[in-house]
Amino acid sequence: MRIRGTRGLRRAGAVLAAAAVVTTAVAAPAAAGDAPRGSGSDVAVHDVRAGDATDWTPQRMRSAIPLDKVLSLSTELVGGLLNALPELLPSPEGASTGDPWTGGGEVTKTTGRVFFSMGGQDASCSGNVVDSANGSVVVTAGHCVKYQGGWHSDWVFVPGYDDGAAPHGEWAAEQTMTTPQWEADEDMNHDVGMAVVETKNGRTVADTVGAQRIAFNGERGQEMHSFGYPAADPYDGSTLTYCAGGTFTDPLLTDDHGMNCDMTGGSSGGPWFSSFDPATGTGVQESVNSFGYTFLPNVMFGPYFGDSAKALYDKASAA
């Protein structure tokens, strides 16, 4: 997450790095009540307590604050590269950098808002349903399931969220998971989370709203569409929003994808699609909204889906 220049808006994401100055606009979470299973090279798994996701009324959803983290680096640290960086950015001409999605299609059902309790504070992110063996996998950001040592509770996914309405129901998580790198060190290169959500009346979330394809170890520099529910000013979290255009690899601290995009807090965890077809609203998910830099206005970054993300998906899909 980062403050966007003179407009003072904050970018979706959560990052920690050496020499970084970090501030936050949300309360730090309490220590996790349940320890994750697995460590080291294992996927980190959290069993969500039965009945955690209750009473998410329209008013409670509207009042949930966007998960908001700010990364700031000194210009001395990045030196001359900072001055050269704008030349590396794809031109935004003809692309969206944060507009309401009016195209319809599957993305309006598979993408939704994520709500959870973080240290006693209601907060929100975004997520998306992907193809899986169990039909119950929602992909989001790692900091949208676990942050600063604590697993979020009361975790629910609302596909197709529309200004407090849940047209396809509210789907409580049975398990939330993240990569071992995020679980151990909150490594921004691996800021990926997944949830295995409940089945309702014998139907999975994928049975109900469909699912998008997902891919790993893909090509870099592709044209992509990013979706989410930004909720920090000037957005209010009520509307599915998108960015679209060329992508590049972050030349500063990470190997993550970058894109011109001014979505703010709350869009964290929303999907990045390659091969996106606006006519059908379908694509191949290859990243999620993760973070931005304070000194680089209107650019979003998302983790590269490599081997650790693939292991996380395999674990969630088999749950």
Rank of each mutant, 00 (worst) to 15 (best):
A44S: 03
A244T: 15
V107R: 07
E198V: 09
F227I: 00
V192M: 14
N298P: 02
W272E: 00
I3K: 03
N260V: 13
G5Y: 09
G119A: 03
V26E: 11
V138A: 01
L67C: 05
T23N: 08
R203T: 13
Y304E: 09
Q222C: 04
T97M: 12
G246R: 02
T110N: 07
G202L: 10
A95Q: 08
V145L: 04
Y304D: 11
A309V: 03
F291R: 11
R10D: 07
L82H: 06
S226K: 13
M177A: 10
D262Y: 14
N260R: 14
S41Y: 10
T208E: 02
S153N: 10
H190M: 00
A64C: 03
D34Q: 09
T111L: 05
A319I: 07
M259Q: 15
R37E: 00
A35Q: 15
N298Q: 12
S117K: 07
G13P: 02
M224A: 15
F115S: 04
A279Y: 01
S267H: 09
N260D: 08
C125G: 15
G104C: 15
A17L: 13
T247P: 05
G150H: 06
M300I: 15
G13N: 08
A31Y: 02
C243K: 09
N217W: 05
D236V: 08
G292H: 05
P303W: 06
G210M: 07
G33R: 15
R113P: 01
R60Y: 09
E174M: 12
A27S: 14
M118G: 04
C125I: 09
T6E: 08
L312Y: 03
G237I: 03
G142F: 06
L88D: 09
V145D: 00
D185L: 09
Y229T: 05
D233W: 13
A279M: 05
G306V: 10
K315I: 04
T247Y: 07
I214R: 09
D187H: 03
P297N: 12
N298H: 10
S268E: 06
V145G: 04
A44M: 00
E76D: 06
R60D: 08
W272Y: 13
W182Y: 12
W182M: 12
P92W: 14
S126Q: 11
T241R: 11
V70L: 01
E186R: 10
G169T: 11
P66Q: 11
L67T: 13
E198P: 00
V70R: 10
V107W: 01
A279G: 08
A17N: 10
T23L: 12
A30E: 06
V45Q: 00
P92V: 12
D277G: 07
G228C: 12
M224N: 03
F227P: 01
D187F: 00
M1F: 10
T140W: 10
